[in-house]
Write a protein that binds this DNA or RNA. Structure first.
Length: 592
RNA sequence: GGCCCCGUAGUUUAAUGGAUAAAACGAAGGUUUCCGGAACCUUUGAUAGCGGUUCGAUUCCGCUCGGGGCUACCA
């Protein structure tokens, strides 16, 4: 039981015994004391005065006296209005530090038997990954690590939208204009190669549309009349009919794309245990919808389409199957979800998908629940907002600024430049230096993205490159490198058992309290599906450590027990920083 | 039109209904030859507006004003 829980429980017992309050632990508010006041933890007694029938001050005073008696770890307390500020004994905090230090699993929870399937990335295969995919992938990967830390059995899956008219557009342009060029022959990364032909298609279709006599005013309508557009449509039909030549080209081009994607995944450090392909699932779901039809959960509209009425849930009528009996997006998603449940028997299914699809996932979950699938309750849409430029949404045509690979090489380039400028790694061989640039560059990028609450949009100005100072990944990495340097010089760590008489300074105490909170932060981030809580925590810890570092001699401390405590504090801060950063998918270097 | 999300210092972000709203960047000034200055310390400055609930509201509710999204037999 954590100390907060202990204090809550003790408060509950006091109130229930003396005032017959009948409250439970969650009725007690306890938090870390505001830095402006003296104390470690604060109990807010306002909600409790209705039981004690005394003033807030009297209630707090009474509670403080009794808690001090009961808990045995409270050195003193003070009361300000309805706030009871408790100061714990130094020996309690030193014991706590010892406990944390000697538990290598601190911050990770035992297996809870819960299986989670998490789907993320979900790219289209007709163009390269962009900054939105980067946010998606970083969220998906980090969330997986956090769920693992809280005891879940996690399976990461990806789904490739590998079919449809968009892919056919790239294929047509390729057939017409490429003369057999390949990524190998041109030296262009496969996914970019595919994207280039998609761009080419769009250029040609615009040109052709201009040339059409009496073209419709509506641009889309005009483009549909062009020969290149018609070719794309024909290609789609051929593909659906299984035309060998078309399927072979489709496969060849998609393979180029996958090869390109793999490079980006590897660079970013994200991975998947299983891949799904829309080309294999796009026809599924018909049986499932018909099952709902038979159970009279869904109904057939006069026009023949099958729909579900979601107006009782505050949504609209939603079509689930076309009148001609073919699947649409929602149909195959219903089927894929069921398929995954059969495969993995998961308790939770997390979809990391942009908030444009909030409505879609509400429908998906409701429809499955209406079909009577209990496991559908475990569906969670980890919705995140778009990454935008200061002038609004990133458009593909704005070019390199939104491209994932360009963004990554940009931060790596900055990392290299800054590192060389500071000149601290002369002893590194080239390979080590390159690994370091990658660690720092990706640390900056990942932290930049993950520190923001997922539901908030991120404004990214490509003109101002990602920062390496202040509230950033490199700042936290630097703090760890600094700690590592201390630890190298400190040598063998001494036991904390014999320093029980030590008197903690304010910042030392603050550090232990913060580290002590780590497991709560992990749990909370997991429950809320929010890696930004971990990111902000890591920053606070690093900042507090730097403050400590500047005001406290460590290796050159005067008294032996000072040195022992401060070295232990440093080492453990490094350990917790590393754990937290790893949950974000960020490495921390020993030197930088 | 209907539904959903967002609005906090000049900028980018924090704050389970709790104390005088916290940081970073920017700007200005500083850090005992200091264990790593990618650091530390000062100064500067904000809850879009109006009501309501509450002992207490950035947080919950309503309205207004801004920004974005969804509202396909597209994905």
């Amino acid at each position: 039981m954590t100390l907060e829980q202990t204090l809550k429980q003790a408060t509950v017992e006091i109130f229930n015994q003396q005032f017959n309050a009948g409250i439970s632990a969650d009725a007690v508010t306890i938090n870390i004391t505001n830095p402006d006041h003296e104390g470690d933890y604060t109990i807010v007694v306002f909600p409790l005065v209705k039981f004690s029938k005394k003033s807030p001050e009297q209630t707090a005073q009474m509670l403080g006296e009794q808690l001090k008696e009961k808990a045995g770890v409270i050195a003193k307390f003070n009361v300000i209005k309805g706030f009871l500020n408790l100061t714990l004994t130094d020996s309690y905090w030193l014991r706590r530090l010892n406990e944390i230090s000697s538990n290598s699993a601190f911050g990770t929870f035992p297996p809870n038997g819960q299986k989670v399937v998490i789907e993320y990335c979900g790219p289209n295969t007709n163009k390269p990954l962009h900054i939105g995919h980067v946010r998606n992938m970083l969220l998906g990967f980090s969330m997986s690590e956090i769920l693992k830390a809280t005891g879940h059995d996690v399976t990461k899956v990806n789904i490739y939208n590998d079919r449809g008219i968009a892919i056919c557009k790239s294929m047509v342009a390729y057939k017409r204009y490429a003369n057999g060029a390949t990524p190998q022959s041109t030296g262009i990364k496969g996914d970019h190669f595919m994207g280039d032909w998609y761009v080419k298609f769009n250029e040609v279709v615009v040109e052709e549309a201009k040339a059409i006599p009496n073209a419709p005013a509506d641009k889309d309508e005009a483009q549909k009349l062009t020969s290149i557009f018609k070719e794309a449509q024909e290609l789609l039909l051929k593909w659906e009919a299984g035309d060998p030549e078309t399927v072979a080209l489709w496969k060849k081009m998609n393979d180029w794309v996958y090869e390109g994607f793999q490079q980006t995944f590897k660079l970013l450090g994200v991975d998947f245990q299983k891949d799904y392909y829309e080309s294999e699932t796009y026809k599924l779901g018909r049986d499932l919808v018909n099952e709902g039809l038979e159970k009279k959960i869904f109904y057939k509209r006069p026009d023949g389409a099958v729909a579900v009425d979601l107006t009782p849930e505050g949504l609209d009528e939603k079509v689930l199957l076309r009148a001609d009996g073919t699947s649409i997006y929602i149909t195959q998603d219903l089927a894929t979800a069921k398929l995954r449940h059969e495969e993995f028997n998961m308790d939770k299914m997390v979809y990391v998908v942009a908030n444009e699809q909030d409505y879609h996932f509400k429908v998906l979950k409701l429809a499955l629940q209406k079909l009577g699938y209990k496991w559908a309750d475990g569906i969670y849409h980890l919705s995140y907002a778009l990454v935008e430029s200061p002038t609004g949404r990133f458009k593909s045509r704005e070019g390199k600024t939104a491209d994932a690979d360009d963004l990554i090489s940009e931060v790596l380039r900055i990392a290299e430049g800054k590192t060389k400028e500071l000149g601290k790694i002369e002893s590194f061989i080239a390979e080590e230096a390159n690994v370091l640039y990658r660690t720092i560059g990706l640390g900056a990028l990942k932290y930049f993205v993950l520190r923001v609450n997922p539901y908030k949009k991120i404004i990214f100005n490509p003109e101002e490159s990602i920062d390496f100072h202040g509230h950033t990944g490199p700042f936290i990495q630097y703090t760890n490198a600094r700690i590592a340097a201390i630890m190298r010089k400190a040598g063998e760590s001494a036991s904390l058992d014999n320093v029980s008489g030590y008197s903690l300074s304010a910042v030392e105490r603050e550090l232990i309290i913060l580290m002590s909170e780590y497991e709560n932060v992990v749990k909370s981030a997991s429950d809320k599906y929010d890696p930004s809580e971990v990111a902000n925590y890591a920053y606070n810890l690093a900042r507090t450590y730097n403050k400590f570092y500047h005001e406290s001699p460590i290796l050159s401390a005067e008294k032996p027990e000072e040195k022992i405590v401060r070295v232990a504090l440093s080492g453990q801060t490094g350990v917790v920083l590393k754990k937290a950063m790893n949950l974000l998918g960020i490495e921390v270097p020993e030197k930088m």
